[in-house]
C-alpha cells in the first residue's frame, strides 16, 4: 500500500506539471531534434535575426505580454510596452532582451507557484513558510527547467518558437554574455541523466520542499513532506530508469550546483543594477531577489 501511495503521488505531481508548464521536456526535445513536424523554431544567431525574431514574437503575443504585465502588478506597464522592435537603437539590444527574459521569468514564477500549490500538504504550511520556500526555491527551479530547452549549441526561448544560439549569447556585451554560460554548462551535464518530465515533476517538488531555507518558522512539516516526495522520486527513478545505476543520488547531487548558480546569478543581477543606469528590475523578481543571499 505504501508503494501504491508513492506511485499515486508521482502521478499527481506529473499531472500538475503537465497542467502548469506549457513547454514540456518531451516537446522541447522534439523541437530540438527536428521531430516536431512543422514546429521549426526561428533561429536567432545575430543582431539582424534577433530583430526579426522580436518582430515575430511581438506580432503574435501582444495580449499575452499584456497578461504578463497584469500578473506582475503595478508600475511595469510603461517599461515593458516599450520593449518593442525598432523603438531603441541596436546598442540597447542587451537590455531589451534582458527585459523580455524578465517578463518570461515572472510568468514562470507564477507557473511554479501554481505547481507548488499542487504539492499535497504545501498549502497547509504556514503562509510565511510558503513564501520562504518559493522565494528560495523558485530561481533554482527556473534554472533547472532551462535544461530541457538547452543543448550545447543554444537554447529554445519563447515557448519553443525561437532557438537562440549560444555563440550569439556569448557575443553580447558584459555582463549579459556571462549570464547564460553557467546554465549551458550545467544543462549539458544534467541532460546526460536523461530525466523525463515525470522525473522532473518529482525533482522540482523536492527542491521546493527544502527544509533548510533561511527563516523558516516550522521546519518539521516541510521535512516530512519532502521525505515522502523523496521516497516517491527514488521509487519512480528505479522503475522508470531500471538500468541507470545510482541515478537517485546523482540527481540529488545537482541540488548543490543549483544553489551555487542562484548565488552567482543574483550577484550578476546586483552588478547589473549598479552598472546599467537604465535598468529596471521586474517587481516580482525584485521581491524574490531582495535579501536572498
Amino acid at each position: 500500500p505504501e508503494a501504491a501511495d508513492l506511485r499515486a503521488l508521482a502521478r499527481h505531481l506529473y499531472e500538475a506539471y503537465l497542467k502548469y508548464f506549457p513547454l514540456t521536456k518531451a516537446k522541447a526535445r522534439a523541437i530540438l531534434s527536428g521531430k516536431s513536424g512543422d514546429n521549426v523554431p526561428f533561429v536567432i544567431h545575430d543582431i539582424k535575426s534577433l530583430m526579426e525574431g522580436e518582430q515575430l514574437i511581438n506580432n503574435g503575443q501582444t495580449s499575452f505580454q499584456e497578461q504578463q504585465i497584469a500578473t506582475a502588478g503595478h508600475g511595469v506597464t510603461h517599461t515593458f510596452t516599450h520593449c518593442n522592435i525598432g523603438s531603441e537603437p541596436p546598442d540597447g539590444v542587451e537590455l531589451r532582451f534582458f527585459y523580455s527574459c524578465q517578463s518570461r521569468s515572472a510568468e514562470a514564477v507564477r507557473e511554479v507557484t501554481e505547481f507548488a500549490k499542487s504539492i499535497p500538504g504545501f498549502v497547509n504550511l504556514d503562509l510565511n513558510d510558503q513564501v520562504t520556500l518559493l522565494k528560495y526555491g523558485v530561481i533554482e527551479v527556473l534554472i533547472l527547467m532551462m535544461s530541457p530547452l538547452m543543448n550545447k549549441d543554444g537554447t529554445l526561448i519563447s515557448y519553443g518558437q525561437i532557438f537562440m544560439t549560444r555563440e550569439f549569447l556569448k557575443s553580447l556585451r558584459k555582463p549579459f554574455c556571462q549570464m547564460l554560460e553557467p546554465k549551458f554548462d550545467f544543462s549539458v551535464k544534467f541532460n546526460t541523466l536523461e530525466l523525463d518530465d515525470s522525473d522532473m515533476a518529482l525533482f522540482l517538488a523536492v527542491i521546493i520542499l527544502s527544509g533548510d531555507r533561511p527563516g523558516l518558522l516550522n521546519v518539521k512539516p516541510i521535512e516530512q513532506l519532502q521525505e515522502t516526495v523523496l521516497h516517491s522520486l527514488e521509487l519512480h527513478l528505479k522503475i522508470n530508469h531500471p538500468d541507470s545505476l545510482q541515478l537517485f543520488a546523482k540527481v540529488l547531487q545537482k541540488m548543490t550546483d543549483l544553489r551555487q548558480m542562484v548565488t552567482d546569478h543574483v550577484q550578476l543581477i546586483q552588478l547589473l543594477k549598479k552598472t546599467e543606469v537604465d535598468m529596471f528590475l521586474h517587481p516580482l523578481l525584485q521581491e524574490i531577489m531582495k535579501d536572498l543571499y
Binding site: G73, V109, K117, L127, N128, K135, E287, I288
Partner: peptide, 21 residues
Amino acid sequence: LKEKHKILHRLLQNSTSPVEL
C-alpha cells in the same frame, strides 16, 4: 515576511487556478 513579498503572497493566495487536492 509575506508583507515584504506582496506579489508572491498574492500568487499564493490567488484561488483562480488551484489544483483540487
